[in-house]
């Protein structure tokens, strides 16, 4: 059964078309990234899937049910963008209340609330009221509430926006470790983060689903006509580096970017079993000969380059 299925999903806000006939099918599994520029319709799509708003036309199903259906209660949860907890209750009171609504008994609800707070390292703030939390802490509490119970799908709208790097990393680790039973759909502008976490990338632009990429299979790379290596340097390269990269075995094209600090090498991959790393070895020999310090060699293109080049 598909996890999410939409067919010609359309939503307008007045005269503005926020979503324009979005059709997609997603299976349960590794996290799914939802990317796109501001105003592309990411939050609208998430809000529709959560049942916060109603579509103008089109169909959508989550685990075979329309969003908001009773069968989905507790199975679909979300980190809604900009939503705030009730300032009148402590964090533990609210999370406990949410757990009660999800069917936990009074004591189990408290334990569950503490469990999810521990996941985001906020057990010590359980008795704080939301007003006493920093922006980052409030975001982590909101992420914690989305993990109550055993949701099948968790929709996270900008989960690490506003978090310090250490906590952003902790949230990424948490998502990665929870991904077994739960499928996450993550909306973010942080492509590097999404690239690390996600298997599938959905690119929305002007309300339309313009691209759907799979990042999963390295083997798939070998079967395509053209593959890529991305070389990042610590400093700007000399002018003669680009032609020398072009002369490496199998390289068909070299694109310089980031003011000469990054090169994308396009090449014709060899079938599996042959001298698969010939190009990489040649590249490292060249860098060693020229005394060039590199920062990263990426097998393929970065998500940013995949989406925008």
């Amino acid at each position: 059964m598909n996890l999410i299925e939409t067919d010609k999903l359309t939503k307008r806000y007045g005269s503005k078309l926020a979503l324009d006939g979005v059709s997609l099918e997603l299976k349960p599994g590794r996290p799914v990234a939802l990317v796109g520029p501001n105003g592309a319709g990411k939050t609208t799509l998430m809000s529709l899937l959560c049942g916060y708003i109603r579509q103008d036309s089109g169909e959508m199903r989550i685990l075979g049910h329309t969003p908001g259906h009773a069968a989905l209660l507790g199975k679909v949860s979300a980190l809604p963008q900009d939503a705030l907890l009730d300032p009148n209750f402590t964090v533990i009171e609210q999370l406990g209340f949410f757990a009660r609504l999800q069917g936990f008994g009074p004591k189990d609800a408290q334990h569950e609330a503490l469990r999810v707070l521990e996941l985001v390292d906020l057990k010590d703030s359980a008795k704080s009221k939301p007003g006493a939390l920093s922006h980052g802490m409030a975001k982590r509490v909101a992420i914690a509430q989305s993990l109550i119970g055993t949701p099948k799908l968790v929709l996270l709208d900008e989960p690490t926006a506003g978090l310090d790097p250490a906590n952003a990393r902790a949230i990424r680790d948490l998502i990665a470790s929870t991904s077994g039973d739960t499928t996450f759909m993550i909306s973010s502008h942080n492509l590097e983060e999404l690239e690390r976490l996600c298997d599938t990338v959905l690119y929305l632009d002007k309300g339309k689903l313009s691209q759907s990429l799979s990042l999963s299979s390295l083997d798939a790379k070998r079967s395509v006509a053209e593959a890529h290596l991305t070389l990042s340097l610590h400093s700007e390269a000399r002018a003669d580096l680009q032609p020398r990269l072009s002369s490496l075995p199998g390289v068909t094209h070299v694109k310089a970017q980031a003011s000469g600090r990054e090169f994308i090498l396009s090449y014709a991959p060899k079938p599996t079993g042959h001298d698969t790393y010939e190009l990489e070895l040649a590249l490292f020999r060249l860098l060693a000969q020229e005394g060039i310090s590199y920062r990263q060699v990426l097998n393929g293109k970065s998500l940013e380059d995949k989406l925008f080049s």
Binding site: C50, G51, Y52, G68, A70, L73, G74, V76, S77, A78, P80, D82, A83, L84, L85, D86, Q94, F98, L101, Q102, A142, Q145
Partner: peptide, 17 residues
Amino acid sequence: TDKSRKTFRFLVQRTGR
């Protein structure tokens, strides 16, 4: 207030309207 604070978004994941 809960509507403008979007607090209901936490609730409608768990209960009906």
